[in-house]
Design a protein around this nucleic acid. Structure first.
Lengths: 351, 351
DNA sequence: CTGTTAGCGCTTTCAC
DNA sequence: GTGAAAGCGCTAACAG
């Protein structure tokens, strides 16, 4: 009826006694440090495993004594989603300082590869870990690899550079996110047939490109009654997004669905509601976008937007910190815990 | 350009010096222990605040030395969702023992209030914290309050007893979950009109009742073309769920949507697919249920089920442990982190 | 290659 | 009321 989960509370000293060696030797084996004879290693490891020994993290942390410094390299400029991540990092400050951790925010132009690469290089040596919203570009990849080679733990955040040797990626699977968006547009359009528009920031951004890829995949295979129009690029800006979309809506009268891949949501919504006014009787265009911000929350509540595909910014902020910490300490990463899910947010499950 | 989040690393000793008292006194003030003159308290508090002092958790944990024991009281019997929670607790075992925490699983008949209350009473005194999947009943409420009065930290899990003095609830807002289900059934049904069926375990269960309430709310206000049939009760059992649903499907030929509130999914799916065979040409019934299990995952992939409303069992398990730990240590709870979201899971965003 | 030892920053007796 | 001092279980520097 009652089942216990836990090893008994042994200490290094117990293991040392059992293996017939000193504390220091056990410590060396525990951290695979050199300078121990192979069969001493085996003897100690046997004792450790036999007892399922887990060193007490609090004691280790205290003894190590060193404060750890992490840097977060974020896009400069006003991106509401990034601001949310920064805000959640701010909320962790008590948690951080109770663990003698510091995180510093570094703003840079992440869209210019050479600027981003240069900024990354300046971080070298000063930090135990770096989280970076990265652009997938050879220069950036090299900068990341340099950091890694210098012993810094590197985590890519939101946007990945899979070809680099970064230790971990904290963010969603953007292809799956695009597929999810496609399924939603298709399903919510019901029996209707017609055209579907896509507004993206730029197809040069890896995450946008991947989302579009996933979206098209689903549309092509599952919703033959809907045809996808060529991708519009709004550079994540409101004005430009509004213009390009308004023009498209003018040209095609049978648009039933819209996928907004990036930001520029304000402009997209504007173009859409202008159209709604002009063709009163008709069914509303199904509108799916990304991320829950002050704006998208309002649009969802108003029924202008039907669903937002979202990655929880609070979770991303905390996961990035926890992963960097685990990497720095040499602890295992709880993959299940740190995985970022693709959330579907509609009016009734707004967080 | 670079903004730092963190207090400088002061120690108790620094505060003691600054306030002109000893370590012990600062410690007493820090934990509002008695035996300190009021104005000494003020002086010390001033120093603490002036420096935004945060005691080092690792040092505190180490010095306290005591291992903490938590109990999880879970329903006996094979409920896949509960089994997932237990499995995720199991995965935490290394994490737990590295912190000298133990969690014990206690199975009991949570559906019988007197049995549950009695089981809770037996826990008194032995544990620092208890997480319980609770039935909302006066006897259970009293048992929870007794535990709280005895100094045990109590967290309700998945199913709440809001009228008790439990310290925290780890679970979703079931009314909102029901509303989300309603919105999905309604939206996915498209332009169709017809009837909608509900299969629940029992309307006596608080979470089921709340979900149904939310579901009906949305149906009534937003989908006038759909009419909801009286709730079927399947006791969360496959056979019974299949029978009652099959009968209903036979009686009404115009059922376009189905909401399965609890378990018994296997039976529900069976009844549904039998019907699908019999009326080939017609549109499939929109089927929305709860939780991602081996079974619902398969049904989603097969397209039998359209969406699952889900609460992340891994997150719930970890949140319950973290909340109990924070309560036991007297640390603040990160509400944002511990909040359980209502996930909408469709085929393409299966976790 | 291995052992000894001095802390890390708190908590907790036990004296005063 | 308040303070002094002995650890908690590790790590790291130094000795051997």
């Amino acid at each position: 009826m009652a089942e216990t989960l836990t090893a008994t509370a042994l200490t290094l000293k117990d293991i040392a006694r059992e293996a017939g060696v000193s504390l220091a030797t056990v410590d060396r084996v525990l951290h695979n440090r050199p300078g121990v004879r192979p069969d001493t290693v085996r003897r100690v490891q046997a004792a450790i495993e036999r007892n399922a020994f887990q060193p007490h993290v609090a004691a280790a942390e205290l003894a190590r004594g060193r404060a750890r410094r992490f840097a977060f390299m974020m896009p400069s400029g006003p991106n509401p989603f990034m601001q949310q991540i920064e805000a959640y990092l701010g909320e962790m400050s008590a948690w951080l300082s109770a663990r003698r951790l510091s995180v510093e925010m570094v703003a840079t132009d992440v869209f210019d590869p050479s600027v981003l690469a240069a900024s990354l290089e300046t971080l070298s040596g000063d930090y135990d870990g770096v989280a970076v919203v990265a652009l997938d570009h050879p220069g950036v990849r090299a900068a990341i690899n340099d950091l890694v080679d210098a012993g810094t733990k590197v985590v890519t955040l939101v946007s990945d550079v899979p070809s680099s040797r970064r230790h971990h990626y904290v963010g969603i699977d953007n292809i799956a996110a695009g597929r999810t968006a496609g399924a939603l547009v298709g399903r919510l359009a019901g029996q209707r047939s017609g055209k579907v528009a896509i507004v993206a920031g730029s197809q040069g951004l890896r995450d946008h490109a991947e989302r579009i890829f996933g979206f098209n995949q689903v549309m092509a295979s599952e919703f033959p009654a809907l045809s996808v129009l060529p991708v519009l690029e709004g550079r994540d800006e409101d004005d430009r997004s509004e213009q390009v979309l308004a023009r498209l809506l003018g040209k095609h009268t049978d648009i039933v669905g819209l996928y907004n891949v990036g930001a520029g949501t304000q402009g997209v919504a504007k173009a859409l509601s202008d159209k709604a006014l002009s063709d009163a009787g008709r069914d509303k265009v199904v509108f799916v976008g990304h991320d829950v911000t002050v704006l998208t929350r309002r649009l969802l509540l108003q029924g202008v937007m039907d669903a937002a595909i979202s990655q929880n910014p609070g979770h991303e902020a905390r996961a990035a910190v926890r992963v960097l910490l685990a990497l720095a300490r040499g602890e295992p990463i709880l993959r299940e815990q740190e995985k970022i899910r693709i959330d579907i947010v509609m009016r009734d499950n707004l967080p």
